[in-house]
Design a protein around this nucleic acid. Structure first.
Length: 255
DNA sequence: ATGACTACCCTAGGTAGA
């Protein structure tokens, strides 16, 4: 099974790029982030015509996630438990082929310190609680999406310049490690221990041609799923296209 | 250099992203 994650930065503005890539890459499951539209406006027919079952969890203007699967998911759930007052659409999880796939758009957290950073850390603790609950079921699962976390300095083009940013700050990385230390495996880094690759390049200041990137889109695999990990690759292709998202997709294959 | 880009709201320029 091949699972993809992609922050598309508006599914409507990106439609030809996204459908074109799905046609080529043909992932069995694809989770999208920052769809930036409400559910009635989600271009579901375009994805259904490619064979995908579609569940979107959007909101007006900002955020929004979606779950695409070639086989019909046994169940799809939205919202991350732990705060009923949280209105932001950032979490969707579906069960496909006996695997629970959690698609997430973790808050950016800037500026830091501040309200938004506090929200990020609270959200990460809620995600950790969800991982604990899923681990308790014993079923294989993965958490994938835009984590807005650079796990280590090797995942940042300018570590010193980004040290105090919400994507790299000590509290952010501590919360990331707390998640990993439950026993989850970060798929790309596990298979590429010494490589430097990025999944995001800012639109500004020629970040893409200069390769000034960040690696913030990840797969975390439960222990049972980590044993089935075959590959995990970042596909830089879409970032180089016209009208590109600032993120590029990442694909993980499990046996 | 208070920069640089792109998307949202909709048609001006504020908000957000990372």
């Amino acid at each position: 099974m091949r699972i993809a994650t992609w922050n598309v930065n508006s599914v409507k503005a990106r439609l030809p790029n996204v459908t074109g890539w799905l046609r080529e890459a043909k992932p069995d499951v694809c989770v999208l982030q920052e769809i930036k539209c409400q559910d009635p406006d989600f271009p579901r027919l375009e994805f259904e015509s490619l064979g995908y079952h579609v569940t979107s969890h959007g909101q007006k203007s900002y955020n929004g996630v979606a779950f695409l699967s070639l086989t019909k998911p046994d169940d799809v759930r939205i919202r991350l438990a732990g705060d009923d007052t949280d209105e932001q659409s950032r979490y969707i999880e579906g069960d496909v082929g006996g695997v629970t796939i959690c698609g997430l758009y973790l808050p950016n957290g800037n500026p830091r310190p501040g309200e938004k950073y506090d929200y990020k850390l609270r959200w990460m603790e809620r995600l950790r609680q969800r991982a604990i609950a899923l681990l308790a079921t014993g079923a294989p699962f993965m958490m994938t999406g835009d984590f807005n976390i650079c796990p280590a300095d090797a995942d940042v083009y300018d570590p010193a310049g980004w040290a105090e940013d919400a994507l790299c700050a000590p509290d952010s990385r501590r919360a990331w490690r707390a998640l990993c230390n439950l026993g989850l495996t970060e798929a790309w880094r596990a298979l590429h221990p010494r490589e430097v690759e990025y999944s995001f390049w800012d639109y500004q200041a020629g970040a893409w041609p200069r390769n000034n990137g960040l690696r913030i889109d990840h797969f975390l695999l439960s222990p049972a799923l980590a044993d089935r990990l075959l590959s995990c690759e970042i596909d830089r292709g879409p970032r180089g296209q016209e009208k590109a998202s600032d993120h590029t997709p990442v694909i993980c294959e499990i046996a």
